[in-house]
């Protein structure tokens, strides 16, 4: 037996309608009771969690000053000079991973942390499109003032 005959024989339509109706009625009744539950229980809600949040709002914690990542060099000048030459060779804006790869190839040791150092020192700056360029002004300021003078970063390794 197949088709509409089978459906009719097993009272399929009435069973399906009954099923959908019962599911809906049961869940509607549940929904109505549960929606009123919090109103009835309202006065007994736990205030402890709310007090914790208020405390955090009244006494916010100060953000920590970010630590610069540890450089490996005594002096930024040598790093800046080497990378400056490389960047002039590859052109701007440049790809940071490509710069690191080339730096490693030409024998600049710790190329990754050198680049990190230059980014933190604002000698390499992003163009907000995924590429970077050399900050010549900052470079001139650093190289022009030389080692040990005021305003030049000297970092111990």
């Amino acid at each position: 037996m197949k088709g509409l005959e089978a459906i009719s024989h097993y009272h399929g339509v009435s069973l399906a309608v009954l099923g959908v109706t019962v599911v809906f009625i049961a869940l509607v009744v549940l929904a109505v009771i549960i929606s009123r539950l919090h109103v009835v229980l309202g006065v007994w809600e736990n205030p402890k969690a709310w007090l914790d949040r208020v405390r955090l709002w009244v006494f916010p914690e100060k953000p920590e000053k970010p630590e610069p990542p540890g450089p490996y060099f005594d002096d930024i000048h040598e790093s800046a000079r080497q990378l400056n030459l490389l960047i002039h060779a590859i052109g701007e804006p440049f790809s940071l991973p490509a710069l690191i790869e080339k730096a490693e190839k030409i024998g600049i040791s710790h190329a990754h942390s050198v680049v990190s150092h230059l980014i933190v020192s604002h000698l390499i700056v992003p163009d907000q499109k995924g590429y970077f360029y050399w900050n010549q002004k900052e470079c001139d300021r650093l190289l022009g003032k030389g080692r040990g003078k005021k305003g030049v970063e000297t970092i111990n390794g």
Binding site: I7, G12, A16, F24, L27, L30, V32
Partner: peptide, 19 residues
């Protein structure tokens, strides 16, 4: 709790497939 109705509606597939 009104989202229970969405749970109910999604069971309609059961009864349609039954037919």
């Amino acid at each position: 709790p009104k989202t229970l109705l969405l749970g109910a509606a999604a069971q309609a597939g059961i009864f349609a497939t039954f037919l």
